[in-house]
């Protein structure tokens, strides 16, 4: 970490103030652009085009999605899950971010480490940990039975609730960090000013801290919401077939039933709705205006 402060660190972390000419910029960008076009945009476009071109130019695949309740149920469940997970993550993350913003010194480092460390552990591992907790003979069930609270183990695994829980826990850092950074960016004298002008601690939070942390809240929500829409491993492993989400459905159509046009149509819907949500979110919150022109 100490390297970030040295000139070499600055070079590597790209905070250099040096400007490049147009030609140089193009030369430097070309390898990445080529890679993106060849390995990302082209395959994606090809895949998405299947939905309207196979077997012949048609909208049948979309009509099929619309017509069958099975698909709409999964789509609605996916958005419901993403909304609930986003809301849950926000509720849990804001207090933690707020606490972090008030801590200094060793405690600040400790809490930051607790928040960030899980990011270094594979999602697969973090998901399986929940099966240990929620399984029929898992920690929660066996403890409850031993304590005499219940006779029969509860079905916790393979429920939508299990998926929410795991997804919220896994995505907490994604919400905490942007909120924390916007809280830290608020000059402390704003809070003092609000107090000296007659505000209580609650007024300071309501009129100063909260509104000024909204850009971080918005960034966290967009991030978690979009990632949740496409969540694959966690719903598959601990949600079971009855809690299937759209990403799992796409995989199933493509790899099990080899119905690529239908998988492609599903992907189109997911992408279209995601893009629309992001645009709406940006419009509603006017993120650029929250902090004013300065």
């Amino acid at each position: 970490m100490s390297g970030a402060a040295s000139p070499i660190g600055r070079y590597w972390f790209g905070v250099s103030t040096q400007r490049y000419s147009r030609a140089m910029t193009l030369v430097l960008l070309t390898p990445l652009l080529v890679l993106l076009v060849v390995a990302f945009f082209w395959p994606i476009l090809r895949f998405l085009s299947l939905s309207v071109l196979e077997p012949e130019p048609t909208l049948d695949n979309f009509r099929q999605l619309w017509a069958r309740e099975f698909y709409t149920t999964i789509a609605i469940r996916t958005f419901r899950t993403a909304l609930i997970v986003t809301a849950g993550t926000l509720l849990l993350a804001y207090p933690v971010a707020y606490l972090m913003s008030t801590l200094r010194g060793a405690w600040a480092g400790f809490v930051a480490a607790i928040v960030v460390l899980p990011l270094w552990i594979s999602i697969l591992v973090r998901t399986y940990v929940w099966t240990v907790f929620l399984g029929r003979n898992g920690i929660i069930n066996s403890s409850a039975i031993n304590l005499g609270l219940i006779d029969q183990p509860m079905t916790l695994l393979n429920t939508e609730f299990a998926v929410w829980l795991a997804m919220i826990q896994i995505q907490l850092p994604m919400m905490i960090l942007p909120i924390y950074s916007s809280l830290r960016a608020i000059p402390p004298d704003l809070g003092m000013a609000a107090q000296s002008l007659g505000g209580s601690a609650r007024d300071v939070f309501r009129h100063v801290t909260l509104p000024l942390s909204l850009p971080g809240v918005a960034a966290g929500c967009v991030l978690v919401f979009i990632i949740s829409l496409g969540y694959f491993i966690t719903p598959m492993l601990i949600g079971g077939p009855r809690s299937m989400m759209i990403a799992t459905l796409i995989t199933q159509q493509a790899t099990k039933f080899l119905d690529w046009p239908l998988a492609s149509a599903l992907a189109c819907v997911l992408m279209g709705v995601t893009l629309a949500m992001v645009i709406v979110f940006n419009r509603v919150l006017r993120l650029d205006r929250v902090m004013g022109a300065g």
């Binding site: 004298d189 000296s196 100063v208 004013g292």
Partner: peptide
């Protein structure tokens, strides 16, 4: 009931 003026003004940017 004291008015205070800060070095960096401390105006609310929002």
């Amino acid at each position: 009931e004291i008015g205070m003026v800060f070095q960096r003004y401390a105006l609310f940017p929002h």
